[in-house]
Protein backbone atom coordinates (compact mmCIF):
# COMPACT_ATOMS: atom_id res chain seq x y z
CA UNK A 1 0.00 0.00 0.00
CA UNK A 2 2.60 2.49 1.19
CA UNK A 3 6.22 1.79 0.43
CA UNK A 4 9.17 3.84 1.63
CA UNK A 5 12.45 2.74 0.08
CA UNK A 6 15.85 3.97 1.21
CA UNK A 7 14.57 7.37 2.30
CA UNK A 8 17.23 9.80 3.52
CA UNK A 9 16.89 13.40 4.53
CA UNK A 10 19.46 15.78 5.95
CA UNK A 11 18.42 19.25 7.03
CA UNK A 12 20.89 22.16 6.63
CA UNK A 13 23.43 19.99 4.80
CA UNK A 14 26.99 21.28 4.75
CA UNK A 15 26.55 23.53 7.78
CA UNK A 16 27.36 23.10 11.44
CA UNK A 17 23.63 22.60 11.97
CA UNK A 18 23.47 19.68 9.58
CA UNK A 19 21.06 17.10 10.95
CA UNK A 20 20.36 13.76 9.38
CA UNK A 21 16.72 13.20 10.25
CA UNK A 22 16.05 10.11 8.14
CA UNK A 23 18.72 7.60 7.27
CA UNK A 24 18.07 4.89 4.68
CA UNK A 25 14.59 4.34 6.02
CA UNK A 26 12.50 1.47 4.70
CA UNK A 27 8.87 0.78 5.54
CA UNK A 28 6.05 -1.10 3.89
CA UNK A 29 2.45 -0.76 5.04
CA UNK A 30 -0.22 -3.24 4.08
CA UNK A 31 -3.79 -2.27 3.31
CA UNK A 32 -5.65 -1.59 6.54
CA UNK A 33 -2.56 -1.49 8.73
CA UNK A 34 -2.93 0.72 11.79
CA UNK A 35 0.64 1.39 12.79
CA UNK A 36 1.67 3.25 15.91
CA UNK A 37 5.05 4.98 15.85
CA UNK A 38 7.18 5.70 18.90
CA UNK A 39 10.74 6.80 19.35
CA UNK A 40 13.13 8.98 21.30
CA UNK A 41 13.93 12.65 20.83
CA UNK A 42 14.75 13.45 17.23
CA UNK A 43 14.26 9.88 16.11
CA UNK A 44 12.63 11.13 12.91
CA UNK A 45 8.99 10.23 13.61
CA UNK A 46 7.45 13.51 12.50
CA UNK A 47 10.03 13.88 9.75
CA UNK A 48 8.94 10.53 8.32
CA UNK A 49 5.28 11.63 8.32
CA UNK A 50 6.18 14.97 6.76
CA UNK A 51 8.24 13.23 4.10
CA UNK A 52 5.26 11.05 3.22
CA UNK A 53 2.95 14.07 3.16
CA UNK A 54 5.38 16.02 0.99
CA UNK A 55 6.13 18.93 3.33
CA UNK A 56 9.69 18.77 1.94
CA UNK A 57 11.45 16.73 -0.71
CA UNK A 58 13.64 13.84 0.37
CA UNK A 59 17.33 13.64 -0.57
CA UNK A 60 17.10 10.08 -1.85
CA UNK A 61 14.79 7.11 -1.97
CA UNK A 62 11.26 6.64 -3.20
CA UNK A 63 7.75 6.89 -1.78
CA UNK A 64 5.03 4.80 -3.40
CA UNK A 65 1.33 4.68 -2.61
CA UNK A 66 -0.73 1.92 -4.25
CA UNK A 67 1.95 1.45 -6.86
CA UNK A 68 2.12 5.13 -7.74
CA UNK A 69 5.44 6.85 -7.19
CA UNK A 70 4.70 10.12 -5.39
CA UNK A 71 8.27 11.08 -4.47
CA UNK A 72 8.23 14.15 -6.71
CA UNK A 73 4.58 15.09 -6.25
CA UNK A 74 3.96 18.44 -4.49
CA UNK A 75 2.31 18.38 -1.08
CA UNK A 76 -1.07 19.72 -2.23
CA UNK A 77 -1.37 16.99 -4.88
CA UNK A 78 -0.50 14.21 -2.42
CA UNK A 79 -3.34 15.48 -0.28
CA UNK A 80 -5.70 13.76 -2.72
CA UNK A 81 -4.90 10.45 -1.03
CA UNK A 82 -3.50 11.48 2.34
CA UNK A 83 -5.47 12.73 5.32
CA UNK A 84 -3.56 14.48 8.10
CA UNK A 85 -3.99 15.63 11.68
CA UNK A 86 -1.16 17.65 13.18
CA UNK A 87 0.27 17.96 16.66
CA UNK A 88 -0.58 21.67 16.83
CA UNK A 89 -4.39 22.03 16.94
CA UNK A 90 -4.03 25.39 15.17
CA UNK A 91 -2.56 23.78 12.07
CA UNK A 92 -5.45 21.67 10.88
CA UNK A 93 -8.21 24.21 10.39
CA UNK A 94 -8.70 27.68 8.89
CA UNK A 95 -9.40 29.81 12.00
CA UNK A 96 -11.16 32.67 10.21
CA UNK A 97 -13.53 30.36 8.37
CA UNK A 98 -16.65 28.68 9.69
CA UNK A 99 -16.84 25.05 10.83
CA UNK A 100 -19.00 24.20 7.82
CA UNK A 101 -16.64 26.04 5.47
CA UNK A 102 -13.71 24.06 6.81
CA UNK A 103 -15.60 20.83 6.21
CA UNK A 104 -16.60 21.97 2.72
CA UNK A 105 -12.96 22.64 1.91
CA UNK A 106 -12.07 19.15 3.08
CA UNK A 107 -14.95 17.62 1.10
CA UNK A 108 -13.26 18.90 -2.06
CA UNK A 109 -9.87 17.47 -1.28
CA UNK A 110 -8.48 15.79 -4.37
CA UNK A 111 -11.22 17.21 -6.57
CA UNK A 112 -11.03 20.06 -9.06
CA UNK A 113 -12.12 23.29 -7.47
CA UNK A 114 -14.45 25.19 -9.79
CA UNK A 115 -16.56 28.33 -9.86
CA UNK A 116 -19.47 26.45 -8.37
CA UNK A 117 -20.64 27.65 -4.96
CA UNK A 118 -18.18 26.60 -2.24
CA UNK A 119 -20.78 24.93 -0.01
CA UNK A 120 -24.16 23.53 -0.97
CA UNK A 121 -27.31 23.42 1.12
CA UNK A 122 -27.43 19.61 1.21
CA UNK A 123 -23.86 19.52 2.45
CA UNK A 124 -24.83 21.59 5.48
CA UNK A 125 -27.27 18.92 6.62
CA UNK A 126 -24.69 16.20 6.08
CA UNK A 127 -22.18 18.14 8.15
CA UNK A 128 -24.68 18.71 10.91
CA UNK A 129 -25.27 14.95 11.14
CA UNK A 130 -21.56 14.25 11.00
CA UNK A 131 -20.79 16.75 13.76
CA UNK A 132 -23.55 15.28 15.90
CA UNK A 133 -21.55 12.04 16.06
CA UNK A 134 -18.76 13.94 17.84
CA UNK A 135 -21.11 14.81 20.68
CA UNK A 136 -19.37 18.14 21.24
CA UNK A 137 -22.33 20.38 20.44
CA UNK A 138 -20.68 21.55 17.23
CA UNK A 139 -23.73 20.62 15.16
CA UNK A 140 -25.45 23.77 16.41
CA UNK A 141 -22.48 26.01 15.62
CA UNK A 142 -22.01 25.30 11.91
CA UNK A 143 -21.15 28.86 11.00
CA UNK A 144 -18.95 29.56 14.06
CA UNK A 145 -15.35 30.31 13.21
CA UNK A 146 -12.99 27.38 13.75
CA UNK A 147 -10.70 29.81 15.61
CA UNK A 148 -13.22 29.94 18.46
CA UNK A 149 -13.02 26.21 19.14
CA UNK A 150 -10.95 24.61 21.89
CA UNK A 151 -7.89 22.52 21.02
CA UNK A 152 -9.77 19.26 21.47
CA UNK A 153 -12.71 20.43 19.37
CA UNK A 154 -10.34 21.50 16.63
CA UNK A 155 -8.54 18.16 16.60
CA UNK A 156 -11.89 16.36 16.44
CA UNK A 157 -12.94 18.59 13.54
CA UNK A 158 -9.61 18.04 11.79
CA UNK A 159 -10.10 14.28 12.16
CA UNK A 160 -13.50 14.51 10.50
CA UNK A 161 -11.96 16.61 7.75
CA UNK A 162 -9.13 14.14 7.22
CA UNK A 163 -11.58 11.28 6.69
CA UNK A 164 -14.35 13.20 4.90
CA UNK A 165 -12.93 12.20 1.54
CA UNK A 166 -11.70 8.67 2.23
CA UNK A 167 -7.90 8.86 2.19
CA UNK A 168 -5.70 5.96 1.18
CA UNK A 169 -3.51 6.86 4.13
CA UNK A 170 -4.17 8.71 7.39
CA UNK A 171 -1.25 10.43 9.13
CA UNK A 172 -1.72 11.29 12.80
CA UNK A 173 1.28 13.22 14.08
CA UNK A 174 1.11 13.24 17.90
CA UNK A 175 -2.33 14.71 17.44
CA UNK A 176 -3.27 14.35 21.10
CA UNK A 177 0.02 15.63 22.57
CA UNK A 178 -1.18 19.21 23.03
CA UNK A 179 -4.43 18.21 24.76
CA UNK A 180 -5.24 17.62 28.40
CA UNK A 181 -5.42 13.90 29.33
CA UNK A 182 -9.21 13.68 29.31
CA UNK A 183 -9.58 15.40 25.95
CA UNK A 184 -6.65 13.44 24.55
CA UNK A 185 -8.38 10.19 25.48
CA UNK A 186 -11.56 11.31 23.79
CA UNK A 187 -9.81 12.38 20.59
CA UNK A 188 -7.89 9.10 20.54
CA UNK A 189 -11.10 7.15 20.93
CA UNK A 190 -12.59 9.10 18.06
CA UNK A 191 -9.51 8.40 15.95
CA UNK A 192 -9.81 4.67 16.63
CA UNK A 193 -13.47 4.80 15.68
CA UNK A 194 -12.87 6.65 12.41
CA UNK A 195 -9.99 4.39 11.45
CA UNK A 196 -11.98 1.23 12.16
CA UNK A 197 -15.20 2.37 10.48
CA UNK A 198 -13.41 3.42 7.31
CA UNK A 199 -10.73 0.69 7.35
CA UNK A 200 -8.09 3.39 6.97
CA UNK A 201 -4.44 2.56 6.61
CA UNK A 202 -2.97 4.69 9.38
CA UNK A 203 0.34 5.88 10.76
CA UNK A 204 0.00 7.33 14.24
CA UNK A 205 2.93 8.92 16.02
CA UNK A 206 2.44 9.01 19.77
CA UNK A 207 4.52 9.80 22.81
CA UNK A 208 2.39 7.54 24.99
CA UNK A 209 3.76 3.98 25.10
CA UNK A 210 0.58 2.54 26.51
CA UNK A 211 -1.43 4.06 23.63
CA UNK A 212 1.10 2.75 21.15
CA UNK A 213 0.59 -0.74 22.53
CA UNK A 214 -3.18 -0.72 22.89
CA UNK A 215 -3.96 0.84 19.52
CA UNK A 216 -3.36 -0.53 16.07
CA UNK A 217 -2.21 -3.88 14.78
CA UNK A 218 1.44 -3.00 14.41
CA UNK A 219 4.01 -0.94 16.30
CA UNK A 220 7.24 0.51 15.02
CA UNK A 221 9.97 2.16 17.02
CA UNK A 222 12.37 4.63 15.50
CA UNK A 223 15.88 5.69 16.43
CA UNK A 224 18.29 7.96 14.61
CA UNK A 225 16.24 8.23 11.46
CA UNK A 226 15.46 4.58 10.92
CA UNK A 227 13.12 1.87 12.15
CA UNK A 228 14.70 -0.33 14.80
CA UNK A 229 11.69 -2.35 15.94
CA UNK A 230 8.66 -3.58 14.05
CA UNK A 231 6.20 -5.64 16.05
CA UNK A 232 2.80 -6.86 14.87
CA UNK A 233 0.10 -9.44 15.32
CA UNK A 234 -0.09 -11.64 18.42
CA UNK A 235 3.35 -10.53 19.52
CA UNK A 236 2.15 -6.93 19.73
CA UNK A 237 -0.94 -7.89 21.71
CA UNK A 238 1.21 -9.46 24.43
CA UNK A 239 3.58 -6.51 24.57
CA UNK A 240 4.22 -4.59 27.80
CA UNK A 241 5.95 -1.26 28.31
CA UNK A 242 8.86 -3.02 30.04
CA UNK A 243 9.30 -5.40 27.10
CA UNK A 244 9.30 -2.49 24.76
CA UNK A 245 11.99 -0.56 26.64
CA UNK A 246 14.16 -3.63 26.88
CA UNK A 247 13.80 -4.52 23.23
CA UNK A 248 14.50 -0.94 22.26
CA UNK A 249 17.83 -0.88 24.13
CA UNK A 250 18.79 -4.16 22.57
CA UNK A 251 17.89 -3.04 19.05
CA UNK A 252 19.14 0.54 19.18
CA UNK A 253 22.14 -0.15 21.41
CA UNK A 254 21.19 2.63 23.82
CA UNK A 255 18.67 3.58 26.46
CA UNK A 256 15.34 4.96 25.38
CA UNK A 257 15.21 8.71 26.00
CA UNK A 258 12.37 11.08 25.34
CA UNK A 259 11.60 14.05 27.57
CA UNK A 260 7.96 13.84 26.83
CA UNK A 261 7.31 10.16 26.65
CA UNK A 262 4.64 8.75 28.90
CA UNK A 263 5.39 5.24 30.01
CA UNK A 264 2.12 4.57 31.71
CA UNK A 265 -1.42 5.77 31.33
Amino acid sequence: MLELKHISKTFYPGTVNAKTALFDLNLTLNDGDFVTVIGGNGAGKSTMLNAIAGAFSVDSGSITIDGRNITKLPEYKRAAFIGRVFQDPMMGTAPTMGIEENLALAARRGKRRTLRWGIKKVEREDYRELLRTLDLGLEDRLSAKAGLLSGGQRQALTLLMAALVQPKLLLLDEHTAALDPKTAAKVLELSEQIVTENHLTTLMVTHNMRDAITHGNRLIMMSEGRIVLDISGEEKKRLTVEDLLERFSAAAGKEFTNDRVLLGA
Binding site: A53, E75, Y76, K77, A79, A80, R84, F86, M91, G92, T93, A94, L105, A106, R108, R109, G110, K111, R113, M161
Partner: peptide, 8 residues
Protein backbone atom coordinates in the same frame (compact mmCIF):
# COMPACT_ATOMS: atom_id res chain seq x y z
CA UNK B 1 -0.62 24.54 6.06
CA UNK B 2 -4.19 23.45 6.33
CA UNK B 3 -4.87 24.56 2.76
CA UNK B 4 -2.12 22.37 1.36
CA UNK B 5 -3.23 19.45 3.51
CA UNK B 6 -6.67 19.84 1.93
CA UNK B 7 -5.20 19.69 -1.56
CA UNK B 8 -5.23 23.42 -2.27
Amino acid sequence: NMARAQGI
